[in-house]
Write a protein that binds this DNA or RNA. Structure first.
Lengths: 208, 208
DNA sequence: CAAAAGTTAGTAATCAATAACTAAATTCGG
DNA sequence: CCGAATTTAGTTATTGATTACTAACTTTTG
């Protein structure tokens, strides 16, 4: 493991380790300013590295932004996977809704990064990749829940509203009627009591 | 009325007229690049005026952006008002859903401007105003439909998904199952056939 | 030692905003 | 109705700051 050098106390990471450190810092910075409102200097400062070094780790700013967005989508999917272990159909979808909603209390940066991604998607180069990330998540949700139509639409739609609530810092309970634990974890929501809203018997098994 | 001057052919508008011309150009430009990805020069060029003159019409770039965002929200509300004339409750909400969805065929810039607004809302100064715009729209929808809870949440949520569909240029029919006229006007949607989803009695389709 | 991880110094371009000026409308006294 | 006075709509030229990115060098580590 990387130990501080005797003389200066500096710790050197492998390029790969440093890349993820940069991405994590970039999540926080890009969440605030988006692609064009964030300077590479701010990211470098946050991660504790010189600004030009970012360009040895990433081809250019857009590549760094894209890596950051991908990281964000990966965190969401990872969270969905954990939340739906052993579940399918409506319970899986419900679990993912809770998981996503949890980000409102935990990690709004992840929600804001999504918004920044969509906002930057006007650039055709970026759009192609961001669509790939979106499609990947879409496929995952379809597979694990077997949902489609209105059911699926409302799921993603409510997710997008979550992003906006995070951005505008709207009161949580305005659109999402739920109870949270002291730690901000989502305990129950109105869907818990009326799963038929999503039009399925709770434990429908998807065909795949 | 502003007639072309004989000599130069230049047309001079009143400051107020020019301001709305600028805002209209700014909608197109900011929709693409957002607050930080759009140069004032690009807006000036599009409206056919010198770049420094923008700063006589607006205090600074943020003020112009904010005016543009407000204009966007106003267009949406205006559209909602026209769509819901004489309607209340579910039929009104359904009419607004159609109206908003229409923007996907007509005026995606209006949808993208919204996304750009949320993305820029990290700036506290901007956020306060953008929240005001949001709240105004929220109040209008609540008043005219009397909706709340899941009904209202799904309405706004599906709107936000519309914005993302516009940004990523996703196929329209992936999340919104509907039929469009040749002109891109929305003729019918799945909600038309199952209004009970929103907990209200089916009602007359709005005439546009 | 040699490769990999980092640095400092610098550059060319972009861009928001200011200053100082000009031309077209409008007002108004005679 | 006319033309000087004034206001209003616009311009050109410029600047100071920021910023993505390069080049060339240094330090650490296996």
């Amino acid at each position: 493991m990387a130990a501080p050098s005797r003389a200066t106390g500096t710790v050197r990471m492998s390029a790969d380790e440093r890349r993820v450190a940069v991405i994590r810092a970039a999540v926080a910075e890009f969440a605030k300013g988006g692609l064009n409102g964030t300077s590479t200097a701010a990211i470098a400062k946050r991660v504790g590295v010189s600004q030009p070094y970012l360009f040895r780790l990433f081809d250019d700013k857009k590549a760094l932004f894209l890596a950051t967005v991908e990281y964000g989508f990966d965190r969401v999917e990872e969270r969905f996977r954990r939340a739906t272990e052993g579940l399918t159909g409506f319970p899986a979808m419900h679990a993912m809704a809770h998981a996503y909603h949890d980000f409102l209390g935990n990690d709004t940066d992840l929600l804001r990064i999504q918004l920044q991604a969509y906002a930057a998607a006007e650039d055709p180069e970026l759009r192609a990749d961001i669509r790939r990330f979106w499609d990947r998540l879409d496929s995952f949700v379809r597979e694990v829940t077997g949902a489609d139509g209105d059911e699926l639409t409302n799921f993603f739609a409510r997710g997008m509203l979550c992003n906006v609530v995070a951005s505008l810092d709207l009161p949580r309970d305005r659109y999402f009627n739920d109870t949270l634990s002291a730690e901000g974890e989502l305990l129950s929501c109105d869907l818990c009591e009326s799963p038929e809203r999503f039009g399925g018997p709770p434990a429908a098994t998807p065909s795949d």
